[in-house]
């Protein structure tokens, strides 16, 4: 096979793949919007189950990673700021970093690794076992039946987990600073001075958006699973990788947009 033929085949394959992804995404959006008209079609029981698994099930690891992130950030920044005698500002830096960026990002990465991959594996296994075909021939569209409750669960779980990750990070930071001689009261005063309602809302909104991305990418990877022995494995890997890429790209875009429009850029120390 010549170079041109290989490039041509690869391009056609890529376009067909992209078309399929877009069709599935479109179907998900249309199904989601149709729930506004027919809310009773939403599978609330499945949503609650997926929400419980994503939020309560993911809480320990989120708290653990959030706490350690706070500890690491506090150590790294305090050692530099201490040489200028301003280590008390670590609390302000931690609050801003956690509420605006790191809280939602790190929680989304955990959600992608834990919940996004499980969505892909669960739906992918159903596909291999012909359960998606069974749903289709029963007249139940798999997107409405399987994708929407899980995506909604991921959207709802993310803000909850983000708040816990941020609080755990602040507790970690407070412990480190106390060890360095900064009183806890001073730490929390710094946190409250720097934190605004806008900042918290920005973080939570980002969290919900990342939840949407992780849920959609995980579920669609599951729906597109190939019926082969390694199909589920590949879908799971692709769900995690593409979720992290999508989270990072979206966060980058949001950072540029908020900077260009000057939204929420002022901070108080």
């Amino acid at each position: 096979m010549g170079l041109f033929e290989r490039v041509g085949r690869a391009t056609v394959g890529w376009l067909a793949d992209a078309r399929e992804r877009m069709a599935l995404l479109g179907e998900s959006v249309v199904s989601g919007l149709s729930l506004i008209v027919r809310p009773r079609q939403f599978r609330f029981g499945d949503f609650l189950l997926a929400f419980q698994r994503a939020s309560y099930g993911g809480l320990p690891i989120t708290l653990c990673i959030g706490f350690l992130l706070g500890v690491i950030l506090a150590f790294q920044t305090a050692s530099v700021l201490k040489s200028f005698g301003v280590e008390t500002f670590v609390s302000n830096m931690l609050a801003i970093a956690l509420f605006r960026e790191l809280g939602p990002i790190i929680t989304a990465v955990i959600l992608a690794g834990r919940t996004g991959s499980s969505f892909a594996a669960e739906i992918g296994t159903m596909k291999v076992n012909e359960e998606l075909d069974a749903l289709t021939t029963m007249g139940l569209p798999p997107v409405r039946f399987l994708v929407l409750p899980r995506v909604a669960a991921a959207i709802a779980a993310m803000p909850v987990l983000t708040i816990f990750a941020e609080l755990a990070g602040l507790v970690g930071g407070a412990i480190v600073l106390q060890m360095m001689g900064v009183p806890t009261v001073v730490f929390w005063r710094g946190v409250s001075t720097s934190t605004t309602v806008y900042m918290i809302c920005e973080g939570l909104t980002k969290g919900a958006l990342f939840g949407l991305l992780v849920g959609l990418i995980g579920c669609l990877a599951g729906v597109r699973t190939e019926s082969s022995s390694d199909g589920v494995g590949r879908s799971t890997t692709s769900a995690v990788v593409w979720s992290i890429v999508a989270i990072t790209v979206t966060d980058g875009l949001l950072a540029v947009i908020t900077y260009v429009w000057g939204i929420g850029m002022s901070v108080s120390l």
Partner: peptide
């Protein structure tokens, strides 16, 4: 108008 039994049964686990 149709009902289908798949090779694996395809019951929801």
């Amino acid at each position: 108008k149709i009902g289908v039994m798949y090779q694996s049964g395809a019951l929801f686990g």
